[in-house]
Design a protein around this nucleic acid. Structure first.
Lengths: 138, 138
DNA sequence: TCCCTAAATAAGAATAATTATCTTTAAATA
DNA sequence: TATTTAAAGATAATTATTCTTATTTAGGGA
């Protein structure tokens, strides 16, 4: 998987650096759409002298090159999502947990609805659902 | 309308202060889901010695007491929405414009869908659509 | 393989938004 | 009107993020 990622970097004309690989792997290992801070903390064990600025810059580079997505939250902290296909999010009302939610049937349903019911003076590019509630387990 | 607002404050056991009234009126007059900064700038003309901290504190109090809602954005700046009934948002892909979007039929459609297709291990409390795209006019 | 150059990193200062602290002021109720 | 307590003002502190500059390194070519 790390091989795939290296190839993706090269395909975008980006240099393959150990920092970039470590940051991407950290995001995959951490799960739950980590914050920059989560990533820094995780990486620091193996890589004690990584720079905070580097992490932010790398994350921004990844987002620009569509290797990551930013996730909106209620708080003013950015979180990052390695899941690139179109999907929605389940937000826990009480904890910081965020899960991905994919549902092609639902996307079609909503897509069809807007085909029949256009929003006046607005051209839709993308629709995201923020589903807030409670997880039953874990 | 300002009378209504005063009553709402009293109903929640909050003191009616000129600052609170001015902040709420500023949000209504400004439109487009203003930031704290927009509000401060607007108020400063009439009310040159309002304190930044007060504005933030008042906004937080309003949100806690359900007189305002916070609006998520891509950026790390919070914006505020005086529209309390359940609604979605249209985000402009290029500008900072955010419009409210209400559609009861759509809510029913989605509500019905999730009644028939429950998300396992998750109890839905609220569903918000973030519709990104372009406005045709203005 | 070694060298070169552009791109990337490290370190830490700077900024921007927000929150906290502490003193003073004023709204509400008796 | 006096009293109490919440709220406002001033400003310091914090937090997340961005910027700056010097140094290092990846990757392509000699």
């Amino acid at each position: 998987m790390s091989k795939d990622f290296r190839e993706k970097l090269q395909a975008k004309g980006l240099k393959v650096t150990p920092q970039r690989v470590a940051i991407f792997e950290a995001i995959l290992k951490l799960g739950n759409h980590p914050t920059a801070d989560d990533i820094i903390a995780f990486i620091k064990t193996d890589y004690p002298n990584i720079s905070v600025g580097t992490v932010y810059k790398v994350l921004e580079t990844f987002v620009e090159n569509k290797l990551l997505k930013k996730v909106k939250t209620e708080k003013d902290i950015m979180r990052y999502d390695p899941h690139l296909t179109n999907h929605h999010h389940l937000y826990c009302a009480e904890t910081e947990r965020i899960e991905d939610f994919e549902d092609e049937k639902l996307n079609e349903l909503i897509g069809d609805y807007f085909k029949k019911n256009r929003i006046k003076n607005f051209k839709i590019q993308d629709i995201k659902l923020q589903i807030t509630g409670k997880f039953n387990n874990q």
